[in-house]
Write a protein that binds this DNA or RNA. Structure first.
Lengths: 340, 340
DNA sequence: ACTGTCACAGAAAGCCTTTTCGGGCGGTTT
DNA sequence: AAACCGCCCGAAAAGGCTTTCTGTGACAGT
């Protein structure tokens, strides 16, 4: 009855037996330790190859206390900002020897707690917490036995390690780009004022305008919602009230798309009459608008990669704490090409 | 010097010592085994609580040969189809006691191989392979010691377990919906003909038309690219050649968006004159179009959940192999509301 | 011929938990 | 009083691997 069992995956003992050595020697041979004669080593390696032996990382982890795993805790997988961060982190770890546990808390603190327990019982060596907004989030509760890095959404505790995008600087970059296109009467249209990102970009933009001796159109930032509809509406309002506007800095590509639609419908030529720059550099939007949309890219994969690197350093004991803000970059497309 | 070490996470031995029992008893108490007096059990549990003891899943896994982990292998994380599938799978496993290793092969076979090795050495109990297109993909090479389930992109080997969306049926659903809206002269505009999904939806649509004694406008499916631009262009062409067209079934929401723009620009009223239905039910597109877009949802999270369930069954030995095609559903919005 | 050195292989401990088995102990049956 | 029975608890093994320590044989030096 008990025949035809699945051929149990080979263990080091099997390899050692086949090669005619002890398991100690086999281990040393496979791991490139020194005290093995070359001839013995090849014999062991051949045996391992023949049995398609794969060392049991679980057993190894148990022994030396290092599992080579980390936890990636996201608050909501559907948020499109989490994904690139997550990709960057996965990439950075995968290139090393580290495997990544993925957990989605779905914005639920209970579930988050549950996942943390599970991860700790699996003896992950560290945790990356990926948020979906740049608003600071409460740090994980209980002092954990492993280092934690917060990515995209920084921790409220400034002593924690947090990696995020520099939205203030990005606001300045966007304005500088419009200024470089020869624009002077620039409006800033963005989303929900309760988002830290909206505030930061706004203050960066205002500072950049002041530095140039200018002021935003209307003397203010137009906060609203992160939607095309808001972009459409506010753009037509601005065209109406400030007909000499010649540049739009939009807080998201969705808003920018609405703005572009509005501008086209009112007969304005982008980029001849007006330059438009969006935010997020979301391909599906930037490359499908007419004209294609210049946008600010937050380098989110880079945020993920740096977060992974910082976690790695923290695991190795060389921890640098605090919030690290990474620079954004402008991706230029048709909507902001200077036309003489 | 070596003082102030991080307080090593508590082990069962610590708990046992604190409770004044042997580790065997402690284990039994914690795991709810029977042969422990109630009084002893509470003493152990208190000790465990006090030390914030978390059982070492690694050691447990080593002992009983069951690690409670699976691998989630995606070919490209940025593909927006992978994400919901992945979410569904993560959800289904997370609810149980299974943790998920995430690996992104980035469409590279070498990297895929590397990840598989790593996962196997971590002794995952199964693998879910998530593709980014519904075209069948070559199965994983080498006979793996664990079951594999293919999600979204089925395996080329029909004996493997594959879960995907039923695109043929979805094509029929879309047409039936347009027919139910009272449309008769329906055009089908879709993307790249080399995509299996495009072919399947097309043949489902054609069959549904035949069943109704009708024929698609132009007697054919208009294959092109998965872009707004294609949607715009082909829509205006169709309006020109077949001015009495009264329904558009689009192979993607992006194409649908282009079609909608084109219709609006040519003065057609959606949904009064023409009904439009998209595909993918991608929120950023469906809710931002004017009017909002009816679309076919592939229930990708469901695909992920079912894949997880099938993998679970396969791990437990009750495997049902073959391709399982899950139904899609229509999400009705303004673009296809019948107007008297 | 004896000691010392060196290169290599093996024995065994240890990581942390689960589980089986055996033993001590108080009470019951013949 | 002897045998027996349950109830709890502890000792020990197992799981696969790494590492340290010990042991062995060959060889050179004296």
């Amino acid at each position: 009855m008990a025949s035809a069992e699945t051929p149990r995956t080979a263990t080091l003992t099997d390899v050692a037996r086949l090669a005619g050595v002890s398991i100690a020697t086999a281990s040393k041979a496979i791991n490139g330790r020194a005290q093995v004669r070359a001839e013995t080593r090849t014999r062991v390696l051949e045996a391992a190859e023949q049995l398609s032996f794969a060392p049991n990382a679980v057993a190894r982890g148990l022994l030396q206390g290092r599992t080579g795993t980390v936890g990636l805790l996201t608050s909501d997988l559907e948020g499109r900002f989490s994904i690139p961060v997550l990709m960057g982190a996965e990439d950075a770890f995968g290139a090393g020897q580290v495997s990544v546990f993925l957990c989605d808390a779905r914005g639920d603190a209970i579930r988050e707690q549950h996942h943390i327990r599970a991860l700790l019982s699996r003896r992950v060596e560290g945790l990356i917490v990926v948020g979906s907004r740049t608003d600071p989030r409460p740090p994980l509760t209980g002092d954990l036995p492993v280092p934690v890095v917060y990515a995209y959404a920084p921790s409220e505790n400034p002593a924690d390690i947090s990696i995020t995008a520099n939205n203030v600087e990005a606001g300045g970059l966007a304005i500088d780009h419009l200024l470089a296109c020869g624009r002077r009467r620039i409006a800033h249209v963005t989303g929900d004022a309760s988002y830290q990102a909206a505030q930061d970009r706004s203050s960066g933009a205002q500072q950049a305008m002041r530095d140039a001796g200018l002021e935003l159109v209307g003397g203010r930032t137009f906060f609203g919602s992160w939607s095309e509809g808001w972009g459409r509406g506010v753009a037509s309002m601005i065209l109406d009230q400030y007909p000499d506007v010649d540049g739009f800095f939009c807080g998201s590509d969705q808003i920018a798309r609405g703005v572009l639609d509005s501008l086209r419908e009112s007969g304005r030529d982008v980029p001849r009459d007006i330059s438009v720059i969006g935010f997020d550099n979301w391909a599906v939007l930037t490359t499908n608008t007419r004209p294609q949309l210049t946008s600010v890219d937050m380098n989110l994969e880079q945020v993920g990669r740096i977060a992974a690197r910082r976690l790695f350093e923290a695991i190795e004991g060389r921890a640098a704490s605090g919030i690290e803000e990474l620079p954004c970059r402008i991706v230029t497309r048709e909507s902001s090409i200077p036309v003489p």
